[in-house]
């Protein structure tokens, strides 16, 4: 799978596009509480960045989630979300009641950290799902 995906122009453009997509994905994830955006969009952007990196660099790609590990990572993201909810129950609150998380002193900061945590879970799930479908489409799950 080392052959080129598109023409020279497309490959070069993708090569310069990938770092900006990554930075924008991190911005969307972290700043998603104040502006449009959030876990799903950030995960899709991360997934697109990884897919473009694969398309340009082939097996020598810098970012890769090999083979069927992608499905496991996606399940791990959904599990992370569920564990935060369970953690809230264990520390005496309701499911996903972020004010009960035993992290900081301030209730508002606990809320922000809890929301950021579940958005990271959604991001990991969506990103790994996109990479898993890409791996299955191009037959890369033999790389495990």
């Amino acid at each position: 799978m080392n052959r080129r995906f598109g023409s020279v122009v497309l490959d070069t453009a993708f090569r310069y596009l990938v770092p900006f997509i990554l930075v924008y994905a991190v911005y969307v994830l972290i700043h998603g509480e104040d502006s449009p955006g959030g876990g799903f969009q950030a995960g899709a952007l991360f997934g697109i960045a990884i897919v473009l990196e694969h398309l340009v660099h082939g097996d020598k790609a810098f970012l890769k989630i090999p083979g069927t590990w992608a499905v496991a990572v996606a399940g791990g993201g959904a599990l992370f979300y569920g564990l935060i909810g369970l953690f809230c129950i264990l520390s005496g609150g309701n499911m996903l009641q972020y004010g009960m998380l035993p992290l900081m002193q301030d209730v508002v900061e606990r809320h922000v950290l809890g929301i950021l945590g579940i958005e990271i879970g959604v991001t990991i799930c969506v990103m790994a799902t996109i990479v898993a479908i890409f791996n299955a489409l191009t037959g890369r799950e033999d790389l495990l």
Partner: peptide
């Protein structure tokens, strides 16, 4: 704008998958 952003990102992802 939230839904628009999601739709734009999903459009990009689905187009990439279709072309692959």
């Amino acid at each position: 704008p939230d839904v628009a952003f999601t739709e734009a990102v999903v459009g990009v992802v689905s187009t990439t998958f279709f072309i692959i």
